[in-house]
Amino acid sequence: MSAIKPEYEAVYEAQNSFRYLAHGADSSLVRWHYHNEYELHLILTTHGNAFIGDYVGPFTPGSVFLCGPYLPHNWVSLGDFQTGIRDRVINFSDERIQSLIQILPEMKSLQTMLADSRYGIEFSKEASARVMDDFATIAGLKGPARVLSFLNIMSELAQSQDYWPLSSRSFEEESDSLMEGRVNTVVNYIIHNCTRELSLEEVAGVLGLAPTFFSRWFKKATGYRYIDFLTRLRISRACEHLEVTDRPITEICFDAGFANVANFNRHFLKIKGMTPRQYRESIEIRGRTMQKVVLQR
């Protein structure tokens, strides 16, 4: 998402080959951040918006993502979800996984997936479903059994080759600690206020900057003009409601923050390549297809 990196997270796990954790949507870990390690991320509950590199798009329960080193990311749930486990996360270092690949030639099958993850990848629901049980049990395992469970997840996902890239570029460059805090502040402010009227002047005021200066700074920091970033975020929110509710499109348009339906339809078509109605129909067709596949098994 940004040429200026967001908040840095140090991952310390000296006693294990990888870090595993589970947390809720209210965790302090839920923020726009990056780290040196890969992150294999399962969304267990809630719907919302994924921010990965310069990608913004919806996530749903059962979604599995793999983010490469230095790639900024965050998952923001819609609604007031404050209890229970939302995320199961595995962090592992490139140094260790590459050492393993050198020792075990069979592990070279992971290389393509790991390279693609530098841009962030999301796995299909089918591929994700095949590893959910391992995600759930790995926390209770120790020693070799824990490592083997992790390798089983990685192998299953790599063999499926059923994923798609998200960000248009990788983010493997040096961090700017001063700017990352400012980016984090303003992005979080936009996320939490995007469904109401949100002027450039108001957002610039969050950092105490003049609107014209802020506009140039924001474009350099995120790769988007402010209005384009805000529009993409609102379209992402609209997609979430189109997918999981049967509310009228007009209501969804206004709730997402658009002032009129014509403007909403125009931006939706430009970003998604189809109208809101066509998007909803495509979701329904996909659902019927999946149901048919399940019944045929």
Rank of each mutant, 00 (worst) to 15 (best):
V30M: 04
V30A: 02
W32P: 13
Y34A: 03
N36C: 00
N36P: 01
E37A: 06
Y38W: 03
L40Q: 05
L40D: 05
L42R: 07
I43P: 02
I43D: 04
L44A: 07
T45F: 01
T46G: 01
H47C: 15
G48I: 12
N49C: 15
A50T: 09
A50V: 08
F51H: 09
G53L: 01
G53N: 01
G57A: 09
G57W: 04
P58I: 10
P61D: 05
P61S: 09
V64R: 06
F65L: 06
F65C: 08
L66V: 05
L66I: 02
C67E: 13
G68Q: 01
G68R: 00
Y70T: 00
Y70W: 00
L71E: 01
L71T: 00
H73R: 12
H73P: 06
N74W: 06
W75P: 00
W75D: 06
S77V: 13
S77D: 09
L78S: 14
G79K: 14
D80E: 12
D80N: 14
Q82E: 11
R86G: 06
R88M: 14
R88F: 10
I90S: 04
N91G: 03
F92R: 14
F92S: 11
S93Q: 05
D94E: 13
E95F: 03
E95M: 09
R96G: 06
I97L: 11
Q98T: 11
Q98A: 11
S99C: 02
Q102C: 02
I103H: 08
L104C: 11
E106A: 15
M107L: 10
M107K: 11
K108E: 14
S109A: 13
S109N: 08
L110D: 06
Q111V: 14
T112F: 02
A115P: 01
A115E: 11
D116W: 07
S117H: 02
Y119R: 13
Y119D: 02
Y119M: 12
G120Y: 01
G120R: 08
E122G: 14
F123I: 12
F123V: 12
F123W: 07
S124K: 06
S124M: 09
S124D: 06
K125M: 08
E126V: 10
A127H: 04
A127T: 09
A127G: 07
